[in-house]
């Protein structure tokens, strides 16, 4: 581990802890940090305890898990496609999930909100599976996978637009809020549904750092170094697809995290996946926790969706990082 990594990783853990405590503290009802610590460790009984334990603790934990998962998914996709613009979106997850949710709610208006996550998971994995299947018809190249991904994504987006234009406002308002990516009203039941899968997949992904190092060298070189590229690419893409789809299924489309977090991490600690993966995961978690908490602070008691804030604050920061660092744009 390089010196930069030894400084960066603990700093990120510290920052994430602070952001987490802040996230528990802010919202329509402000709770001082001292009370939070008291609550987490001593269990006083009152209104604050209720808010923290029932609402903010699960949603902040969910922010950490899904933010980290989306970032890891982004690292995998960027390593496999060797493209700076690649993100889980490229393999169709966002558009597929969005289309599935809107289709589901317009075809079955009685569909309970509780079913949306499953519908989204199905849509995301179906879109990713379609893209992979179509790209695998001929010897697979990153370029073809990206172009097929964009094509399938556009078809899904067209479907989303069609439904949004033809449906009445009332029918689609709930899925629309969900689509912008929000942690509003997410609780223990959401967390308990996804945490085993997300933590298992994240752990698996962290273990595969050396495989990603080798895949990043390109198909020819990876093969020459003894990698069974077809098998490993399939396994890695499946992990990336599940990480992103499961995240999208509970928190909606929090755009940009899967694209930004890996880039920021690479600027901080370099390209070796052994350090890049945990760094990106921490940054992804930090971004979503901060976006969610900020969304509660700005105009209480209303909330601004985390998805809107990650794009709003993330994009300028992202451009700043790219302009100020020695970005390696050449392959």
């Amino acid at each position: 581990m390089t010196r930069r990594a030894r400084i960066t990783l603990p700093s990120l853990v510290l920052l994430l802890t602070l952001a987490f405590v802040w996230s528990l503290s802010v919202g329509a009802v402000k709770i001082p940090a001292s009370v939070i610590i008291n609550t987490l460790f001593d269990l006083d009984g009152d209104q604050q305890r209720f808010i923290i334990n029932r609402s903010r603790l699960p949603r902040s934990l969910l922010a950490v898990l899904t933010g980290g998962a989306m970032a890891l998914s982004g690292v995998i996709v960027q390593a496999l496609l060797r493209n700076a613009l690649a993100s889980p979106k490229i393999i169709g997850i966002n558009s597929g999930a969005a289309l599935a949710v809107l289709l589901g709610t317009s075809l079955a208006p009685d569909l309970a909100l509780a079913w949306l996550p499953l519908v989204a998971l199905l849509g995301g994995t179906l879109a990713a599976g379609t893209i992979y299947g179509l790209s695998a018809l001929r010897p697979m190249s990153p370029e073809r996978l990206i172009l097929v991904g964009i094509a399938v994504g556009l078809v899904c987006d067209a479907g989303v637009d069609f439904i949004m234009v033809t449906a009445s406002t009332f029918e689609i308002s709930a899925p629309l809020v969900w689509l912008t990516g929000s942690l509003w009203a997410r609780g223990w039941q959401h967390l308990s549904a996804v945490w085993p899968f997300l933590s298992l997949l994240s752990a698996l992904c962290l273990c595969l750092f050396f495989r990603l190092d080798l895949m990043r060298l390109g198909t020819s070189q990876a093969t020459a170094l003894g990698v069974n590229v077809r098998l490993e690419r399939f396994v890695l893409l499946a992990i990336a697809t599940l990480l992103a789809s499961i995240s999208v299924s509970v928190v909606g489309v929090i755009g940009f995290v899967g694209l930004m977090a890996p880039h920021i991490a690479r600027q901080l600690v370099g390209g070796r996946h052994g350090v890049l993966l945990p760094t990106a995961m921490l940054i992804g978690a930090l971004l979503v926790v901060l976006a969610d908490a900020t969304g509660r602070v700005l105009v209480p008691p209303l909330e601004i969706s985390a998805g809107i804030l990650t794009a709003l604050f993330g994009a300028p920061f992202f451009v700043f990082i790219l302009l100020t660092s020695r970005m390696e744009t050449r392959e």
Binding site: L217, G218, E331
Partner: peptide
């Protein structure tokens, strides 16, 4: 290979 891929951020 004829065109080796240069991975970013690798020494």
């Amino acid at each position: 290979p004829q065109h080796p891929v240069v991975p970013p951020g690798i020494s």
